[in-house]
């Protein structure tokens, strides 16, 4: 069984089983400090994670956006006002001044959750 894990602080947080995710969509993760991350699974098996908060509206909804790619770079489009965010860098593709935080993610055969 493969699990998806997210790096928070110095440890890896278990997100869910890989099989629970739908390629092309994201899930929201509650972080230990009460923050939220959005984790996405690509068609070819890639995973990326960014802050779940849409900086344009303040709503925690990025995990519910549509995933796509331009020029080979995966992005998520906010479900609210549709701005796209590069999943690798967190940069907003429609507004240079805006970016979201990114998190390292991995899929692992075993899970090591942080406390």
């Amino acid at each position: 069984m493969m699990t998806v894990e997210l790096k928070v602080d110095e440890g890896w947080l278990t997100v869910c089983e890989l099989s629970e995710m739908t390629p092309g969509r994201g899930v929201a993760v509650l972080l230990p400090d009460g923050g939220q991350a959005a984790v996405f699974l690509g068609r070819s098996g890639w995973t990326y994670a960014v802050d779940n908060r849409d900086p344009f509206t303040g709503a925690s909804v990025l995990s519910r956006g549509l995933v796509g790619c331009v020029e080979g770079r995966p992005f998520v489009a906010s479900p609210l006002l549709k701005q796209r965010f590069d999943l690798e860098t967190g940069r907003c593709l429609d507004d240079e001044e805006v970016a979201v935080r990114t998190y390292p993610v991995r899929t692992a055969a075993t899970s090591t959750a942080v406390a």
Binding site: R25, A59, S60, R64, L66, P79
Partner: peptide, 21 residues
């Protein structure tokens, strides 16, 4: 199946997304 990944959030959750999520 795959159709789930194609839908905008509204269709995906069969409800209308509001400004606060």
């Amino acid at each position: 199946g795959e159709q789930a990944a194609l839908q905008d959030t509204n269709d995906h959750f069969l409800a209308n997304l509001q400004r606060n999520g």
